[in-house]
Design a protein around this nucleic acid. Structure first.
Length: 500
RNA sequence: GGCCCCAUCGUCUAGCGGUCUAGGACACCACCCUUUCAAGGUGGAUACGCGGGUUCGAGUCCCGCUGGGGUCACCA
């Protein structure tokens, strides 16, 4: 086993965008393959025609690539075990389902959905657990074949053992024994000729030479069934690791896009990776974050590169317990990564969010703005709009703040008026219209006026931004330019005078 | 409900019988710095779910209870 190449796979069902938990599963598989110099395969499990979403595959691959998870084999890149889309592999499943029937490990079932429904209802009435009553299991192979040949509709069911136990092995959970009588005669091949997950996963993991399977624990209850199917085929099994579930931030139930969790302010906490992409989260932060759910770097380190994580990653270190999504920690990590960006990187990252808000952004001011907002983005890139969007909004649209916001604490209207007048004089006459020079001149002004820096700068900041929370005063002046600064100071002066 | 998994601060976690008066991080609180807001600095509060064992010794091993989660489709 140690000699065979490490091959892992991520096998999502393309029913929508990628779920954050799915990305974590993909990440672990990818890290494991990269660590061991093996291959990471992307396989698309689209065997449910009813839930087919034509956009999903594209969206899903986009999210994977955004996160930096490249695949060695799979859609768009091909590979020796293709095709990698299950709906294009029907012949394999049908062939192996037939083989199982021939070997006596499976049987055709002619029961209609209606009958299945009746069986379950009857069982429910008797307070028995639901499940197929194995009616067709007793049909003789000859008769069954005849009915199949006659064109009767059927599914292929697995012939699960009626007694005994099946012991399963899991790297992070050890052994678990399941009583065989609790295992259903699961459908392997549907009446439309498509396989169910149970058949497809075993056939494909074998045909694609997967060495290690990391999948969500949601699969654990059907794991013994899979083990039985592997044994029926007589194939060597991969090593399995069932990953803990990522629960809602409040720990109640798993993350669901139908019923998304909310933070303490009532804001929706995204479940799909695309929402994080749109909401200004950096992929490096997301990957760092996800790597810490159910696994940890060690050395009390919280911030690390994916390369560093790969070096240390082991299956055995995965924590078996489910965990609530620590959404606050993602915000913090994202802000940490934002702070570590270079100015050009940050400017480039910011631009789409500003533009999406309808702002016309010139590169020169964007490059000046980037370092100013860098430490002020607490969660994500979208916050730049609220904090500094006013810089790029058309000047003619500017509406000054009300007088009570312009006038600072422990200060009267007269003082605010003085401040604005004096500042206008400075702004008009100063040679070097830059942050540092403006700051020095206004510090002197505060002294002259016998006001604090906070009072003077505050009046001006609100006058310029019409916001109580904004970029620092003199950076704002530089960003707006002398003429616009002067115009806004005058506007504020009018407002305060009118109110006085 | 049946079956299965899990259980350390509010949350993510370290801990794999003695070094635990339980460590880190986020969040929270206080103070410092300060030009609003941030960032940064310092400090603080907060956890081994309960009950039995095993052992000289248990957060660490075993059992039970409780709690939480997952799963019971011709969906994955």
């Amino acid at each position: 086993m140690a000699e065979s190449p490490i091959r892992t796979r991520f096998a999502p069902s393309p029913t929508g965008s990628l779920h954050i938990g799915g990305l974590r599963t993909a990440l672990f598989n990818w890290m494991f393959a990269r660590k061991h110099g093996g291959q990471f395969i992307l396989r698309i499990e689209d065997t449910d025609q009813k839930r087919f979403d034509p956009d999903a595959l594209r969206t899903l691959m986009e999210a994977m690539r955004w996160a930096g998870l490249d695949w060695d084999e799979g859609p768009e890149v091909g590979g020796p075990c293709g095709p990698y889309v299950q709906s294009e592999r029907l012949a394999h499943y049908q062939r192996w389902a037939r083989w199982l029937v021939e070997q006596g490990h499976a049987y055709p079932c002619f029961c209609t959905p209606e009958r299945l429904e009746q069986v379950n209802q009857a069982k429910a009435a008797r307070k028995e657990p639901p499940g197929y009553d194995r009616l067709c299991r007793s049909i003789s192979p000859v008769e069954a074949q005849a009915r199949v040949d006659a064109g009767e509709k059927y599914v292929v069911r697995f012939k699960a053992p009626l007694e005994g136990q099946t012991i399963v092995q899991d790297v992070i959970r050890g052994e678990t024994a399941f009583d065989n009588h609790t295992i259903q005669d699961a459908v392997l091949l549907k009446s439309d000729g498509f396989p169910t997950y149970h058949l497809a996963v075993v056939v494909d993991d074998h045909l694609m030479h997967i060495s290690h399977v990391m999948r969500a624990v949601e699969w654990y209850p059907s794991y013994p069934l899979h083990v039985l199917i592997w044994r029926a085929f007589g194939w060597d099994m991969p090593i399995f690791a069932h990953l803990p579930v990522i629960l809602n931030p409040n720990g109640k139930g798993k993350m669901s896009k139908r019923n998304p969790p909310r933070d303490k302010f009532g804001n929706v906490i995204p479940v799909m990776v695309h929402h994080y992409m749109e909401n200004g989260y950096l992929p490096q932060a997301m990957v760092n974050f996800l790597a810490q759910i159910g696994w940890n770097f060690g050395d009390d380190r919280e911030v690390f590169t994916i390369q560093e994580a790969i070096e240390r990653f082991t299956l055995e270190a995965i924590n078996p317990a489910n965990s609530a999504l620590p959404a606050d920690k993602l915000d913090w990590l994202n802000a940490t990564y934002i702070r570590n960006l270079t100015t050009p990187e940050l400017a480039a990252a910011l631009r789409p969010y500003l533009e999406r808000a309808g702002l016309v952004v010139d590169e020169e001011r964007l490059l000046k703005l980037a370092p100013v907002v860098q430490t002020r983005l607490k969660k994500n890139l979208t916050e730049v709009v609220e904090l500094a969007g006013f810089i790029f909004r058309p000047y003619e649209d500017f509406q000054p703040a009300p007088a009570e916001q312009i006038i600072q604490k422990k200060m009267d209207a007269a003082a605010a008026i003085r401040t604005l007048e004096e500042s206008m004089t400075i702004v008009q006459s100063i040679d070097d219209f830059s942050t540092a020079t403006l700051l020095a001149a206004h510090e002197a002004l505060a002294q002259r006026l016998e006001l604090t820096n906070g009072q003077v700068f505050g009046v001006l900041r609100v006058a310029l931004s019409a916001q109580t929370i904004s970029t620092p005063t003199f950076e704002t002046m530089e960003l707006l330019g002398r003429a616009e600064t002067l115009r806004r100071l005058a506007l504020a002066l009018d407002v305060v005078r009118a109110a006085a």
